[in-house]
Amino acid sequence: MSDKMHIKLTVNGAPREVLAEPRELLIHVLRERLGLTGPHIGCETTHCGVCTVDMNGKSVKSCTVFAAQADGAEITTIEGLGTPDDLHVLQRMFHEHHGLQCGFCTPGMITRAHRLLQENPDPTEEEVRFGMAGNLCRCTGYQNIVRAILAAAAELNAAREAAQ
């Protein structure tokens, strides 16, 4: 039997500490111990991507990472991207382009898209589709999800150019 571990994380910019068994998955620690219910639990088998969070600059499916592996990591969840009063560009574009229907996949979609645009700020439609291939939308609303991400990229790039 294993003892609980003292796990230190930086979550959405703030230091957090939890006691958790090594076998606890990152998604469970985020949702149940830290109260971050933005990342969802869908398939729990590394397929659907609704549990996607950013860990040390990588998009990961937090149902397939032990909290113990994340000890010391920097985590960003959907809660760290925007607030209801000050939406992230991606959140605004998902709203404007109807990039969500039931909304269950949306936190994972946006968190993944955020990392994708960090790595490839000006993607083609094909690159968006390939880069988002680890996230499933069971409403099958992919057309507008891709439109929303391309629109967010365009707005971010326009803002970047204006700032220069």
Binding site: S2, R23, L25, H28, E44, F66, D71
Partner: peptide, 11 residues
């Protein structure tokens, strides 16, 4: 979908 308990090492 939670595994059985184990001890974690990070050498």
């Amino acid at each position: 979908m939670i595994p059985s308990a184990f001890e974690y090492h990070r050498p």
